[in-house]
Amino acid sequence: MLRIPCPVCGLRDETEFSYGADATVRLPDMNEADPKVWHDYVFIRDNPRGPHKEYWHHVSGCRQWIVVHRDTLTHEIFGSALAREVAA
């Protein structure tokens, strides 16, 4: 089980969160009409080995979406921030 630092609530168990998405990809603009752009947004992901940024939802806590900086290899968590402050 991971222990995830929430900027609002402090260090909490992983079970209070749900994983959301890769935080390095960005929702296309709503007026974007090119299917390729939407296709890449929905389906194309890197699979990094090492430090990575991820969206997690503190779903059983403050309900904030946060960006967690996590190593996918060691599971080390370097820090987190509110998505509304740092989102891509």
Binding site: S18, G20, R26, R63, W65, R84, A87
Partner: peptide, 17 residues
Amino acid sequence: AANVLARAEYLLQTAWR
């Protein structure tokens, strides 16, 4: 119910803030 709320919060806190 829970998924729709989580999705709405996601959009409003990230791309549509």
